[in-house]
Simulated scan of single mutants.
Amino acid sequence: MTNRLRYLDNAEKIFVFDQVYTLTAASEQATRKKLSAFGMFAKLNLFNRPKDETVLLSKHELRYEPFWHAVAIRSADYSRELVYPVEIGNAFANRVLIDGKEYPVVEQGGKRLISLPGVEYSHRQIVFDEYVDGLARELKKGALAHYFKKQYKVQERTALELPEAVVPQLRLPTLLQQIHQKLAADVINAHEFQEDLITIEKVHLYYRPVFAFEFTWTTEDKVGVIEVDGLTGDVIENGQWFKEKLQAITTREMLFEVGSELAGVLVPGGSAAVKVIERVTADNGRSRT
Rank of each mutant, 00 (worst) to 15 (best):
A212E: 02
E130I: 04
L56G: 12
A72D: 00
K51R: 08
R63T: 15
W241F: 07
G239R: 01
K153P: 02
H146T: 02
L162A: 03
L23S: 14
E201M: 06
I249S: 06
T24G: 13
Q181V: 13
G264C: 15
S58V: 04
K243S: 14
K182D: 10
N189I: 11
K111C: 06
S287V: 09
V83E: 09
T251S: 03
H180L: 14
P85Y: 11
Q151E: 04
L97A: 12
Q155T: 09
V187Q: 13
N3S: 10
V127E: 10
V16M: 01
N284V: 15
R157K: 13
I226S: 02
A165D: 00
A37E: 03
R6K: 13
L57H: 14
K43M: 10
F242M: 08
F211D: 07
L44F: 07
E102G: 04
K222F: 04
I200H: 08
E120D: 13
N238W: 12
L116T: 05
D129W: 11
F193R: 00
I200Q: 11
Q247P: 01
G118Q: 12
T24E: 12
R208L: 07
L8N: 07
Q247C: 00
Q177Y: 10
A26H: 02
L62Y: 10
K149D: 08
L175I: 05
L82N: 03
K111V: 03
T199F: 02
V265A: 13
E227R: 10
A143D: 15
A263N: 07
A184C: 01
S36E: 14
V280G: 03
D133C: 10
Y103L: 04
K140R: 15
E81L: 15
F38P: 04
E253K: 06
E261P: 08
G118M: 13
L172C: 10
Q155C: 05
